[in-house]
Amino acid sequence: MEQVAPPLLNIRGLRKTYGAVEVVAGLDLAVGKGECFGLLGPNGAGKTTTLRLALGLTAPDGGSISLFDLPVPAEARRARMRVGVVPQLDNLDPDFSVRENLMVYGRYFGMKDADIAARIPGLLEFAGLEHRAEARIDALSGGMKRRLTLARALVNNPDLLFLDEPTTGLDPQARHMIWQRLRMLLGQGKTLVLTTHFMEEAERLCDRLAIMDHGRIIAGGSPQALIKSHIEPQVVEIWGEGVENWVTAHGATLCERAERVGETVFCYTRSSEALLQKLAPHDDLRYSSRPASLEDVFLKLTGRDLRD
């Protein structure tokens, strides 16, 4: 029989209430070694609170958390010895240079100066900041700061990394660079737990996802499995002047499910051929056909209402 390794992070029935609002409302999740686990959800779904609870930075109102088999928050401090954190907002130390940021942060883990100094060249190389070691933080671009924050999270050579929206606010180049680094870490056998609302990020990086809304996990699985089990494989988007007439004439008859969002009709279907043939002669309609994506699943499950 195959030996099943215990999960590095194991959360059972987790609850957290602020005032009358249950921000985390009975959450179960387990993350195994070497996995990249993504927590997806709209703003206010409870993602960041879940991470804070997992780190022992706030006490739950119910349920249990174990991190490296240590109970959290009781033994959170010990568990954090083996954890790295990339917070949502950069909180690098503006009074220090790039190198000093790594040095000072390593000391918080009780590391000896010589040991930290020995790790710094590798961390700088990983972050692509070899030539900026003495630069001040305010001289770095947004992408460089993010990479330094990631390098700082690795100073204690953690087994598990928590990343809270690691690429929010970055341009596409910087985002791809972070993704590449995260894949390198997965290649080294590190475990990643990340929150995001970039579907592409989740699809590219994560082995397993949980879509979260109103403090609960409403769907979970691999990105492919989620698409397969929650949504029709083809999507045809239709817009243009004639869209009103089209809806009146056909509604959702040519596809399994149609959804109107403002000026655009989304038709979800197992086979789009018949629909596309019907659309072709209409000069007043524009359309595009594409395979269903994680974003379609996300919007289906969490709705299209704005979350502020």
Binding site: L57, R77, V83, N91, L92, D93, Y105, Y108, F109
Partner: peptide, 14 residues
């Protein structure tokens, strides 16, 4: 402002 404490609290400090 700088959230220096937040960064420290992610390390094994209370």
């Amino acid at each position: 402002v700088q959230k220096t404490w937040d960064a420290i609290l992610n390390a094994p400090l209370t």
